[in-house]
């Protein structure tokens, strides 16, 4: 799975975002991360085929998440479903 890296000054945490290209909440997460200078990787699931979709689905379910987007995985441990600004601030220490 080829994710796209958005560089940022703050790379303290490893942030992976599963998103949809048309989703407004996913767009908000991207803007939020960018505005706060957080480096992150993202993957627009709707722009990819079955193989990649299956990988994302398996990854989210394995981590006990819901199959909804945006799904943010921080440091490969913490999974956050949806744009929860307060939670993101807390986990990313911003």
């Amino acid at each position: 799975m080829q994710t796209i890296t958005v560089p940022g000054k703050n790379s303290k945490h490893r942030v992976l975002l599963y998103a949809l290209s048309t989703c407004i909440w996913c767009k908000r997460v991207k803007s939020f991360l960018r505005e706060n200078g957080i480096e992150y990787d993202f993957f627009d699931v709707d722009l990819h085929g079955e193989k990649e979709r299956e990988e994302v689905t398996a990854d989210i379910l394995r981590r006990g998440g819901r199959l909804s987007y945006p799904t943010i995985i921080i440091d490969g441990e913490m999974l956050i479903t949806g744009f929860k600004e307060d939670k993101l601030r807390e986990v990313l220490e911003i």
Partner: peptide, 24 residues
Amino acid sequence: KPIPERRPNEKQIGPHIKSAKAFT
């Protein structure tokens, strides 16, 4: 504010997603 997803999780799993079955 963003709201929780009401659509049942099982409806989000496509019939072709084999590995999903192992987890749920």
